[in-house]
């Protein structure tokens, strides 16, 4: 499926999806509450079949927090980049996709650990790299690093 038809497809499912121009992949911003259903649809539909989640990144865009999903279909070969954003810095939360792609289990734990974004319904949402009683989320731009390890 080429990019236009893929955009069309996602637009019919989620009319609010915004297309971002001039990107390496087809990039769409999806409202957080619609994302899980869209993801299920993209994975299950025969003509999209996005079965391979090859990258899941958390990003702190200062204005908002963002999670970027890179999806690929191993059968059809098309890829798409989906973004969900939230401006809630105190208690950001998205729906988990670890029930759709098992790989997301670890990816989401990493994002939770470093960005403090919660994933609803995640089976095992714990910190993965840092200590359980670590304060704050170090990969956020406003994180104050008291021991100053990174600046060294």
């Amino acid at each position: 499926m080429d990019n236009e038809r893929l955009t069309e497809r996602i637009r019919t499912l989620v009319p609010e999806a915004q297309l971002e121009e001039n990107k390496q992949f087809l990039t769409l911003v999806i409202p957080a509450d619609k994302f899980h259903d869209l993801a299920v649809n993209l994975k299950e539909s025969e003509d999209t079949l996005m079965d391979y989640l090859f990258c899941l990144s958390g990003v702190d865009m200062i204005k908002h927090l963002m999670v970027v999903y890179h999806l690929n279909s191993t059968k059809h070969g098309h890829s798409v980049e989906l973004k969900v954003k939230t401006e809630n810095r105190e208690n950001p939360a998205f729906d988990t996709v670890s029930d759709i792609w098992q790989a997301a289990n670890f990816y989401e734990r990493e994002v939770f650990d470093l960005f403090g974004i919660r994933f609803n319904n995640h089976p095992d949402l714990r910190r993965i790299f840092l200590d359980e009683n670590w304060q704050g989320y170090p990969f956020r731009k406003d994180y104050v690093d008291e021991v100053n390890i990174v600046d060294l």
Partner: peptide, 18 residues
């Protein structure tokens, strides 16, 4: 601004339990 590495071992580790 942000550089994320999708490292192969991290995903491969996820399957060890299964």
């Amino acid at each position: 601004f942000r550089l994320k590495f999708r490292s192969p071992n991290f995903s491969n580790l996820g399957v060890l339990d299964k």
